[in-house]
């Protein structure tokens, strides 16, 4: 995973709540067995059916920060939703509330999810609608979103932040604790099932 320290780019206002993972990328685009190329499915139904959908507007075509309504990423566990956003050029999603699995996946895929109060989301929407070229900076080091004269701090779990700043992969970190895993395994009850063909 790529490290994330700070990112500056333009932002697109997605004025919708409960954007589910089927809207971010529908099932038919999940058949790919590689880890890249998912931009073709990103918001495909809205991009196809709604000419004035925000990402169809040229002024937002190059946005790399998505500013969405509450409950972004509800639904399926597909990490493909993260990959589609990354492949589609986004590095950050801002919302007042995310679905758990989406947010957790984002910490593994290197997409930064930033939680801001809804009132701050509304202010940011207003600013980027008034001037779509407004540069927005998301600084993970400083834990702040800034644009124009506005600086909005955000909270993020310290451990997650450290991992993102370093671009560390979890498997490698866990492998440092193999002793603990082995000790735990030695104590597991013998009657727990295995998936080997049944008797």
């Amino acid at each position: 995973m790529d490290a994330f320290t700070t990112h500056t780019g333009t932002a697109a206002p997605l004025r919708r709540s409960a954007v589910d993972t089927d809207q971010i990328i529908p099932a038919e685009y999940l058949k790919r067995i590689t880890r890249t190329g998912f931009e073709d499915g990103l918001f495909i139904a809205w991009r196809t059916n709604e000419p004035d959908f925000v990402l169809n507007q040229p002024q937002y075509a190059d946005a790399s920060i998505l500013v969405a309504g509450p409950d972004f990423g509800t639904g399926s566990s597909r990490e493909h939703a993260n990959w589609a956003l990354l492949d589609g050029g986004f590095r950050v999603v801002i919302s007042s509330r995310f679905a758990d699995i989406f947010r957790n996946n984002s910490t593994k895929s290197g997409l930064l999810t930033v939680v801001l109060p809804q009132a701050e989301v509304e202010k940011l929407w207003t600013a980027i609608e008034a001037d779509p070229t407004t540069p927005v900076t998301v600084d993970l080091q400083a834990k702040a979103v800034s644009y124009g004269d506005t600086v909005v701090p955000f909270e993020i779990d310290d451990y997650v932040r450290w991992r993102l700043l370093e671009g560390l992969d979890d498997v490698g970190l866990t492998e440092r604790h193999l002793d603990d895993i082995e000790a735990y395994e030695a104590k597991r009850p013998s009657w727990l099932p295995t998936a080997l063909p049944a008797r």
Binding site: N82, I101, N104, K108, D170, V171
Partner: peptide, 10 residues
């Protein structure tokens, strides 16, 4: 609980 593909790998 459900997990993403990176966690599947983990």
């Amino acid at each position: 609980f459900g997990i993403g593909t990176s966690e599947v790998e983990h």
